[in-house]
Design a protein around this nucleic acid. Sequence first.
DNA 1: GGTTGACTGAGAGTAGCTCTCAAGATTTAA
DNA 2: TTAAATCTTGAGAGCTACTCTCAGTCAACC
Lengths: 138, 138
Amino acid sequence: MYTIKEVADKMDISEHTIRFWAKSGFFPFIKRDKNNNRIFSENDLDWVKIVKCLRSVGTENKAIKRYIDLCIVGDSTISERYKIIQETKLKAQQQLEELKQQIALLDYKENFYENLIKNNLEDTWNPMNKQYPKNKVV
Amino acid sequence: MYTIKEVADKMDISEHTIRFWAKSGFFPFIKRDKNNNRIFSENDLDWVKIVKCLRSVGTENKAIKRYIDLCIVGDSTISERYKIIQETKLKAQQQLEELKQQIALLDYKENFYENLIKNNLEDTWNPMNKQYPKNKVV
DNA sequence: GGTTGACTGAGAGTAGCTCTCAAGATTTAA
DNA sequence: TTAAATCTTGAGAGCTACTCTCAGTCAACC
């Protein structure tokens, strides 16, 4: 059993965000103690985990709520949930490829600057540079 | 030379966003035609590319503006820009690892649902399920 | 018994788009 | 040659998903 603060620390999400998600109906099964404080079970943590996952790959909150609601309905929605997870995974894999390309660009830029510094060269990237080179940077 | 629409198509960014970025001072060198329409050079496209890159790895617009301003200043800011790119790359690599883990979770869920469907099993994930199993899902 | 610290919900504030709109220029069609 | 369609512009409203502030409740420690 965890308090909201413990969940926040454990999952690396702010307490504010967890309360916001709770208010959005993402954790329908959380119990309260006698002071009305939320107490998260291990099972509730699983819900936090999947919400964090969906959110981090860009799933809209409305779509997350839809998925949660399908979970609550039960077994009859399994194939629909399967489809959602499948599509989300595909989207995430595309993001991975995109991210790799952006890292490659950052890597190129890093080497470029490193080279400038090492050799005391001019910054050919800067469009202010009057000797803008034929072989453009980036 | 490109119109804003051509840049939007080429870079897969909405025209709205490009105008928003332009208003934010991310493209300080864009020329206008006689009707005040923006005309993007190949060099301007490079700026769009680096802004898109920084943005896509979560760099705040304020920090992007800072980087752009450093570029405008010129060679004296190269080492500072180098540091920014280095740190951004590190952040992006962490995101890559995080994304891989989220994909692994989605993959697990996908297999889990697939198995349920294939074998007509119950959904052990759903907390509504009374026979909540000892080995919890996810 | 008073202060410290965790929690609560309501609601204001913020970032970064995203969209609508009216105005102006151009191109195309009748 | 006038009309309609298309592209652009900036201003500004609207939206999503937080993010933060605040006043209030409760329990635990000195």
